[in-house]
């Protein structure tokens, strides 16, 4: 394999297939997004109200090569310019991950360039830095998606501390479940976000569960919504959606603020699919302004699953740890690598 010095000219092809998006991107020097292509499977899963693993895996296999080809064409670079292949190795759906990992290793072999396995959660932490390299560490990242809700202290590249996390449902999961219950469709996040615009967020005062420290809990809120709607069958769905969303955002922002204060962070960055929620974005910016710290909101495209963040994170990992051996498999339960605190 060629010797590689990781620097500002290093071109990384990123590949992401951990859930229901097949994505590929070309990123130079860790932060310069040259191309980013995402093929979403939302329509394939919508009728089931959730991601069906076997359907996801089949679609990834079908889309992987075309998506990679398009990322290269859109980047306008010759594939001989690609210096390394970064790919999500976990966490995620095992069958879905394996398609990307297998393809990525094959590209690495064929082009004789290093392969680097990327932790999907760690990549989400990079989505903010990717769009604003001027962000200074330490940073609090509020990572909210369908599978995760966590507050992470990003102390340095590769040095993270978990400040708090959900003790039951993830925030995105609560959005999906409440949306399904209200008959608003799938995925729940955008559905609730849209309907809530027409509702009164103060119509119903749903409980804000505040577990110890910086942890979260959303399962009680979901139950409260269901009980309320059963007791008041004529209530407007818009009011329920708006009040539910207000409760979730309230808890997320309150704890993120407290986390930033506790560690003396320079700012708070959002990451994960729920970071596309408009109320969360608005409230977080307001809170940061009040506290005199930076609030950073990655673009909606960068919040949801994409391969640019994989390529970016891969660049940093390659620089610090080198290539990943080709005998690594997919790691569906991979966790964020944390500092011993």
């Amino acid at each position: 394999m060629r010797e590689l010095t990781v620097g500002p000219d290093t071109v990384v092809l990123g590949i992401e297939t951990s859930c229901d998006e097949t994505a590929a991107a070309i990123v130079m020097g860790g932060t310069d997004i040259v191309s980013s292509v995402v093929s979403s499977q939302i329509d394939l899963h919508a009728e089931f109200g959730g991601v069906v693993p076997e359907i996801a895996s089949r679609a990834h296999l079908e889309m992987l090569n075309p998506v990679v080809a398009r990322a290269i064409v859109e980047a306008g670079v010759d594939e001989s310019r690609i210096d390394a292949i970064a790919c999500t190795i976990g966490p995620g759906l095992i069958g879905a991950l394996l398609v990307g990992v297998s393809g990525a290793k094959a590209y690495s072999l064929a082009w004789d360039v290093p392969f680097v396995g990327v932790n999907h959660l760690e990549a989400h932490l990079y989505s903010a830095l990717l769009e604003d390299p001027s962000l200074e560490l330490p940073l609090v990242v509020l990572l909210v998606s369908g599978g995760h809700t966590m507050l992470v202290e990003m102390r340095d590249h590769g040095a993270y501390r978990l400040l708090g996390q959900t003790i039951d449902d993830a925030a995105g999961e609560a959005f999906d479940k409440v949306a399904r219950f209200l008959g608003l469709g799938y995925p729940g996040g955008p559905a609730i976000d849209a309907v809530a615009l027409h509702g009164d967020p103060e119509a119903i005062r749903f409980p804000r569960a505040v577990p110890e420290g910086l942890d979260f809990s959303f399962s009680g809120l979901k139950t409260a919504v269901v009980n309320y709607v059963r007791a008041h069958p004529d209530v407007s769905s818009a009011d329920v959606a708006a009040s539910f969303q207000a409760a979730v955002v309230d808890v997320l922002v309150t704890k993120a603020r407290r986390a930033a204060r506790e560690i003396g962070a320079t700012g708070i960055a959002l990451g994960g699919g729920v970071a596309a929620n408009s109320l969360l974005r608005e409230e977080l910016l307001g809170a940061c302004a009040e506290d005199g710290i930076r609030g950073f909101l990655p673009s909606r495209a960068m919040c949801t699953d994409n391969a640019a963040m994989i390529a970016s994170c891969g660049w940093y990992r390659l620089r610090s740890d080198g290539a990943t051996p080709l005998d690594v498999g997919a790691l569906p339960n991979l966790r964020l690598p944390l500092l011993a605190s």
């Binding site: 992987l64 090569n65 990679v68 394996l98 393809g103 094959a106 590209y107």
Partner: peptide, 19 residues
């Protein structure tokens, strides 16, 4: 076996595409 098959298929098609 679907999952195993896809490991071979994704590897083979990506190799052929790249080469």
């Amino acid at each position: 076996l679907f999952t195993g098959m896809r490991v071979g298929l994704a590897t083979a098609t990506s190799l052929a595409q790249a080469l």
